[in-house]
């Protein structure tokens, strides 16, 4: 029975996104940390590299090329949204420098990735 591990990963993503975020102040929509299966933001363990690593891992599991289940398409979109939000929230060190020297963060940078679905 091929592809079950992938299918279950895709459903896990949907499940994580469907739960309301608990305890994160002033935030609506899914808990993106949970979507990427990362420790909660307040733990302070989340770094840019950790986000990136987890994002890549999930892409290999839920991208529709790799995953024939019906949930793959939606799961990938959720993982992508999570990556867009979290990579902006946890910029890599040289990226952070680049941003501060070129231009301030605009609101659309943060909110163009409004949760979908």
């Amino acid at each position: 029975l091929p592809g079950v591990a992938q299918a279950s990963a895709a459903y896990d993503v949907h499940y994580a996104a469907a739960r309301k975020s608990i305890g994160v102040a002033g935030e609506s929509g899914p808990d993106w940390y949970a979507v990427l299966n990362l420790p909660p933001a307040r733990s302070g363990l989340v770094t840019h590299d950790a986000v990136k690593k987890q994002y890549r891992k999930l892409c290999l599991l839920v991208h529709p090329d790799k995953n024939t289940s019906a949930a793959a398409d939606g799961a990938f979109k959720l993982v992508q949204s999570a990556w867009d939000v979290l990579s902006a929230r946890h910029p890599s060190t040289d990226q952070a420098v680049a941003y501060s020297t070129t231009r301030p963060m605009r609101p659309q940078d943060l909110y163009r990735t409004k949760p979908t679905a």
Partner: peptide
């Protein structure tokens, strides 16, 4: 799903 999938995951190892 998640309930079902936990069950599934267990079975996968043998099936794969």
């Amino acid at each position: 799903f998640t309930v079902v999938l936990l069950f599934l995951k267990l079975l996968t190892h043998t099936a794969l």
